[in-house]
Design a protein around this nucleic acid. Structure first.
Length: 900
RNA sequence: GGACUUGUAGCUCAGUUGGUUAGAGCGCGGCGUUCACAUCGCCGAGGUCAGAGGUUCGAUUCCUCUCAAGUCCACCA
């Protein structure tokens, strides 16, 4: 194996490895054999990929999601569970249509100049291109998902499910059509759900004026143009100023337009705001709408879907809302009606897709009633969605959020949920399965055969279909979805084995959009929960903590850095330093840093394999372990246990950090170095191979490419991908605490390096070391034995030592020596004429001071009865040990100080 | 207005049921190539764990308040 390259060449291998995996078929659970004789009932493990929108490219957030999910998937696959990760994409109706609209704009045209069919074709082409691009990117990240099960929110199977659920809900009376005030985006020309509206603070003018001269008081508003639709004035019933007017009706002339106003008392009106009187516009404000329903006020629609004043408002008709505002304020002023204009800060509502200000207006739309009791559940879908997380439904444990705190946020949101507007005036999406003929309405999965029916022109909110994601992806084709016993039944093994999904991993930013909708929709459709656990990650921000966006130019492209530093390095950079539910900062240097690690792992393997590439057939002699062997085996056993525990508990980052620490420092810096100088080299090779093999397994979920590449160099075509996760029971037995001896040797080596460095002893200067034995036993092992066995190692491990003397402590100290006390032993380097006594004195004094402080602290603690009585025995014992060690160190330091 | 998160070394972050000398990587300073690795090795400096109280024998860790940064929800006539 002399032909292993010096550096890890990810460019040459990643593609090859990917093809090897895919050819093997092991990304699919169908080829995996289930672990036998396992009492663990969790023999199946499933994740559904949050489907990326087909709007172009993947970003770092997607790369993070893919990394976390792939780690979980690979880990569970190696545990011997039947594991599946189902990939897919989301048609994302508004988002995708907007992208194409932008492209059209660049081309100098717009959707309004294209026939609907042509526009739709353009979007579908764009979606296809995006999909192919995304699929390629997902592969590049090393995602071991099952492409044979790939799904799309707009394909035939998912479309059938959408229609089925719609029909069920329609029949149950859960879906209804009604004229209500909705969030209207004038640019998208579509409605939006309440949570698709974003808010931003803005400065605006608050106008205070009277409708007309003979109106008894003034009102305040930031939107004078909507006042053409006022049908009431609300005041607080406690407000003495207005008490006498409540219940009165006024027919007035508002700048030439007739208004019929009733004065109503409503406790939601704040007496201190503005004049304390509020003009109620039922048609153009959701709050006013509520008030209007309570007081049964008439609705007058002023603004149309294009954002213009409707017919019937005289000189204002046809004006855009902003123009109408100008004209009205101007006229109010010249009529002497304006009483005040002041700057206020309020929050403006914006479309979450195009940031256009939202126009609330009444419109005939489809809604889901979230409060209506469903006969077969005797509860509303809101009730079920609350129970699913708070106490569990359908005989399932409650859905667990990681981190826990998001459960509260979810519950608050669901509890306050109002009817969900699901119809969109977008061409790209699922058509509403409703047909009209004269006054008749028909809702069905297939179009009516009879002629003359016209389908509803609208499409469904994109979250309606993604809300069905977990169970619809378990269907292989439309036939797998059927109605039965008042619910939707999914046939096939996948649904039986893999649903509810084990883990849903997604960003906390779409808990409401998606996670909550899945719970609502799945509970209703199949009478079950969609997933057992929700594992939430944060957002990937730039190095300053800002959101990455194309307009800010701070975007790191996953594909680009993957080609620059290797996919494994990118994966590590997205894992380490992240914690569930918290945002992370990322810059390119961090990614570059992890390339160093992959190269280190490469070279560790290179060294071991160059010793002997016949891995696996070597016997380990259990009766012949050195202290280093025992030490590394203990450490490694601990590593396996903790890594397993952390992976099972979603502490993925911690697992990765610990692996780096073990690999780099314990294994490479100490064990590997020591192994070069020990006598039984056959045994060394066997042990090195044993640890390397198992270490590669532990690393595989995190850095799949490099580990598989190394594995392939010796594994005779067996794939690391499906190797079994290490079990400590299979590890060679090792005896007692012999490993502790190696820790003492490490202390000695470090102290020698330390002394040399402090005294600027040139590296080529060889020195003699005297080690005095203060205590015969250390952690139950003979100190003398440790030193005898280790003296050769002490010389070799970059200490520049040529001779080691082991003696009893001498009474006299030489001024020509430097020394360090390690408790059970003293390390002394003799140096004729080199020691700077002054400097040494200062150093020793400083050290003594530190030791004295620690001693007095320890003594104080031990003399405190409260401590000795109340603290656990182990802690008190440990404190005694520390004190003992410190006192030896103190004595030795004092002796040394006396000679200088 | 309600709630949540974060605050540990110059920077990015660990710190596992509270346990006594708080860690890593990067950066910085010094030194070093006898062959696994300069995408490397060795050594070092650097922290009153945001601040103030409290609980406790003992607090970076638990509680309360304050400050700072950020997020979500509600309100905004």
């Amino acid at each position: 194996m002399t032909d292993i390259p010096k550096n890890y060449d990810f460019k040459a291998t990643e593609g090859k490895i990917n093809r090897l995996w895919e050819k093997s078929g092991f990304f699919s659970p169908d080829k995996l054999t289930k672990e036998k004789n396992k009492k663990n009932k969790n023999n199946y493990f499933s994740i559904v990929m949050p489907p990326p929108n087909v709007t172009g490219d993947l970003h770092m957030g997607h790369a993070e999601m893919l990394t976390l999910e792939d780690i979980l998937i690979r880990y569970h696959r190696m545990l011997g569970e039947k594991t599946v990760w189902i990939p897919g994409t989301d048609h994302a109706s508004i988002a995708t249509q907007n992208k194409v609209e932008k492209i059209l704009k660049k081309e100098g045209t717009s959707r309004h100049f294209l026939p609907k069919e042509e526009f739709l074709t353009r979007i579908k082409d764009f979606a296809k291109k995006s999909h192919d691009n995304i699929e390629n990117q997902i592969r590049k990240m090393g995602s071991s998902c099952d492409w044979g099960r790939e799904a799309y929110t707009l394909d035939k199977t998912r479309s059938k499910a959408v229609k089925m659920v719609f029909k069920m809900m329609y029949k149950d009376g859960l879906i209804y059509r009604g004229e209500k005030v909705v969030n209207w985006c004038p640019r998208c020309s579509s409605t939006l759900a309440d949570d698709e509206v974003e808010y931003r603070d803005q400065k605006t003018k608050l106008y205070t004026f009277r409708y007309c001269k003979d109106f008894p008081f003034a009102i305040s508003t930031t939107r004078p143009e909507t006042k053409l639709g006022d049908t009431a004035v609300a005041v607080n019933p406690k407000d003495k100023r207005f008490l006498k007017y409540i219940g009165k009706r006024f027919t007035i002339d508002f700048l030439g337009q007739k208004l019929n106003l009733r004065i109503i008392g409503d406790r939601s009106v704040e007496m201190d705001f503005g004049t304390g009187a509020l003009g109620v516009t039922p048609s153009h404000s959701k709050i006013d709408e509520k008030m209007a329903r309570v007081h049964q006020l008439p609705f007058v629609k002023v603004i149309d879907e294009a954002g213009k004043i409707r017919e019937g408002f005289g000189e204002f008709s046809g004006l855009k809302a902003t123009e109408a505002r100008k004209k009205i304020t101007k006229k109010l002023k010249s009529a002497g009606l304006m009483e005040k204009e002041e700057e206020v800060t309020n929050s403006i509502s914006l479309c979450y897709r195009c940031e256009t200000p939202i126009e609330p207006l009444p419109s005939l739309q489809w809604f889901i009633d979230v409060n209506k009791k469903i006969p077969r559940f005797k509860k509303s879908i809101k009730d079920i969605a609350i129970e699913a997380v708070s106490k569990g439904v359908f005989n399932r444990s409650k859905i667990e959020f990681i981190p826990h705190r998001f459960e509260k946020e979810y519950l608050r949101w669901v509890t306050n949920l109002e009817d969900w507007c699901i119809s969109r005036q977008i061409v790209f999406g699922h058509s509403i399965p409703v047909w009209y003929k004269n006054n008749k309405i028909l809702c069905d999965i297939t179009p009516p055969k009879e002629k003359g029916w016209r389908q509803d022109p609208d499409t469904l909110d994109t979250w309606f279909s993604s809300g069905l994601w977990t169970f619809t992806v378990m269907a292989k084709n439309p036939k797998d979805l059927q109605f039965k016993d008042g619910k939707i039944v999914v046939s096939g093994k996948d649904f039986k084995n893999f649903h509810p999904v084990s883990v849903l991993n997604t960003g906390y930013d779409i808990i409401f959009f998606w996670v909550a909708r899945m719970i609502l929709m799945t509970a209703y459709s199949i009478s079950d929960i969609p997933f057992e656990k929700v594992f939430l990650h944060g957002l990937v921000k730039d190095e300053k903590g800002k959101k990455m966006s194309k307009s800010l130019g701070n975007v790191i492209d996953p594909l680009n850095v993957s080609e620059k530093y290797g996919t494994d390095a990118v994966r590590l950079s997205l894992l380490i330093g992240s914690s569930p539910g918290n945002d992370m900062k990322l810059n390119e240097e961090k990614i570059a840093g992890f390339r160093k690690f992959t190269n280190k792992l490469w070279n560790i393997s290179r060294y071991i394999l160059q010793r002997n590439s016949e891995v696996g057939n070597m016997n380990i002699d259990k009766n012949n372990f050195t202290s280093a062997d025992s030490w590394i085996l203990t450490k490694f056993k601990e590593l396996v246990e903790l890594t397993t525990k952390d992976l099972s508990g979603f502490n993925l980052a911690r697992a990765g950090e610990r692996l780096i620490d073990f690999t780099w420092s314990d294994f490479a810096d100490w064990y590997l170095e020591a192994s070069k100088f020990e006598t039984n080299q056959t045994q060394k090779t066997a042990l090195l191979h044993f640890i390397l093999k198992n270490l590669l397994k532990l690393w595989h979920p995190f850095t799949p490419f490099i580990t598989e590449t190394i594995w392939q160099s010796f594994a005779n075509n067996r794939l690391l991908l499906v190797e079994k996760w290490p079990k400590i029971n299979d590890f060679p037995a090792y005896s007692g605490n012999k490993g502790d001896a190696f820790e003492l040797l490490q202390e000695i080596v470090k102290s020698i390096r330390n002394l040399r460095s402090d005294h600027k002893i040139s590296p080529d200067k060889k020195v003699d070391v005297t080690i005095e034995i203060i205590k015969d036993k250390w952690k139950g092992i003979s100190t003398k034995e440790i030193l005898k066995e280790g003296s050769n190692l002490i010389k070799k491990l970059r200490t520049g030592v040529q001779k080691v003397d082991i003696t009893v402590p001498s009474k006299k100290k030489s001024p020509n020596s430097i020394h360090q006390s390690l408790g059970p032993i003293n390390v002394i380097i003799s140096l004729e004429g080199i020691v700077d006594t002054k400097k040494e004195k200062i150093k020793l004094k400083k050290e003594l001071e530190k030791i004295n402080n620690l001693i007095s602290g320890a003594k104080k603690r031990l003399s405190d009865k409260n401590f000795t009585q109340k603290a656990p025995k182990e802690v008190v014992e440990k404190q005694k040990e520390i004190l003992e060690k410190l006192e030896i160190e103190k004595r030795e330091a004092e002796k040394q100080l006396n000679v200088h």
